[in-house]
Amino acid sequence: MSVEHNDPKAVVTGMWQALSDRDWQALAGFLADDCIYLDVPVGPAAAARGPEDIIKRLKIGLEPLAGYANFPGLMLHDGADVMYEHHEEWQWASGESALLKFVSVHQVRDGKVTLWKDYWDMGALSNHAPPSWLADFATADMSWIFDATGLA
């Protein structure tokens, strides 16, 4: 990881670049061992904890895509807290695509992301994904599920 450990914005920027590149090994380097990832539309009972399980969770949606890109937007921080407004474009090999608008909230401690919450519209994805998307998601490895109720 080649970011200034004392700069939460640089850590979050590096983390999102690694995700945009789908560089799972680099992404893991930005996440604390006890980091919680919470996809807010899904809820805290289906969060993921720790780099390995967070990456398992992210791969379910992103790894099968023919194209994926994160487009940077406004990033604000107050000490260890970083809010990032951005959007992603998902493209499937079958031709469907979706533009997803996000606000992501992060906490950074000692140069690592310790909490990552994504706020977005699930309908923006489900309305544009191929018909097989939900079925594929339903049969995916769910060993990553962590109940973060009361923790995030």
Rank of each mutant, 00 (worst) to 15 (best):
N6A: 13
V12K: 13
V12P: 13
G14L: 07
G14N: 03
M15S: 05
Q17L: 11
A18F: 04
D21F: 00
R22T: 10
W24H: 02
Y37T: 01
Y37L: 14
P44T: 15
A46S: 08
A48E: 00
R49C: 05
I54L: 04
I54H: 00
R57V: 00
L58G: 03
K59N: 09
L62A: 09
E63N: 05
E63V: 00
L65D: 07
A66S: 13
N70V: 15
M75S: 03
M75D: 00
H77A: 11
V82R: 06
M83Q: 07
M83C: 10
E85V: 10
H86S: 08
E89Q: 14
Q91P: 02
A93D: 05
A98M: 09
K101Y: 14
K101W: 12
F102D: 12
Q107W: 01
V108E: 03
R109D: 12
G111M: 10
V113P: 05
T114P: 02
L115V: 08
W116L: 11
W120D: 06
M122R: 13
G123M: 14
S126R: 15
S126A: 14
W133E: 09
D136I: 05
D136S: 11
A138V: 00
T139N: 06
D141W: 07
I145M: 15
I145N: 07
A148M: 02
A148Q: 00
